[in-house]
């Protein structure tokens, strides 16, 4: 026996609220053949609170991949680096793509060192808003042909050298998890959130 109207409450992800579906089922239209309610009810089970898929991630396995560094320094590892060690590393491993001084423009890796804050060419000193991004990026992606091969001390040293080359720190500053987040980048004050919003005004 089919009810004239069956109201089915379907929980859509528990996020979009619920949807009422009215299923009109006329005995005459269907002949009198028995029609399973299942055949006219989508998602009759609804969604469970959780599907129970996946397995718990252990702190240990998260730590292996959790390599990001936050602007406040969260995620920075132990260790430290100096400008002089960074300069030697830069000369040995970075000049092939970034040029001898980092001020070169037409390089595969692009310009790294700004000579003035208002210079048009984007570089670390006139465009990068956070010093922590240097450590995060060098550690995850550099050098191009052997990403992830640098030790934490080497990454700190390269960070120190590049900050010094951009005249943001002096050559005696040691860069580590405490000092790096305190470095204020000159370009940070220029950054504003997206203000485009559709409509007729071109922004």
């Amino acid at each position: 026996m089919i009810p004239k109207t069956a109201c089915l409450k379907i929980l859509g992800a528990g996020l979009t609220g619920f949807l009422l579906v009215a299923v009109q089922a006329s005995d005459q239209a269907w002949g009198n053949s028995p029609v399973s309610e299942q055949s006219v009810k989508p998602d009759t089970l609804g969604w469970p609170a959780r599907f129970g898929l996946g397995r718990p991630a252990t702190a240990k396995e998260i730590a292996v991949v959790d390599i990001d560094v936050w602007p406040d320094g969260t995620g920075l590892p132990a260790g430290s680096g100096t400008v002089s060690a960074g300069k030697a590393l830069y000369t040995a491993q970075c000049t092939v793509c970034h040029g001898a001084t980092g001020t070169e423009s037409a390089t595969l890796g692009g310009r790294l060192v700004a000579t003035s804050l208002t210079g048009r060419e984007k570089a670390i000193g006139n465009y990068w808003p956070y010093a922590t991004t240097l450590f995060d990026y060098i550690r995850r992606a550099m050098p191009l042909t052997a990403p992830g091969s640098l030790s934490n001390d080497e990454v700190y040293s390269l960070t120190a050298f590049l900050l010094q080359a951009n005249q943001i720190i002096d050559s005696t500053v040691v860069i580590n998890a405490k000092t790096l987040p305190k470095v204020v980048m000159p370009a940070q004050k220029f950054f504003v959130p997206d203000d485009r919003k559709g409509g007729r005004e071109i922004r």
Binding site: P71, T133, Y137, P193
Partner: peptide, 21 residues
């Protein structure tokens, strides 16, 4: 997180010396 791709890349200079992020 202020990653490289959302700070030094994929941002655009706009008027008044500002950089849209």
């Amino acid at each position: 997180f202020m990653t490289r791709e959302e700070t030094s890349k994929y941002t655009e200079p706009i008027r008044n010396g500002k950089i849209r992020q």
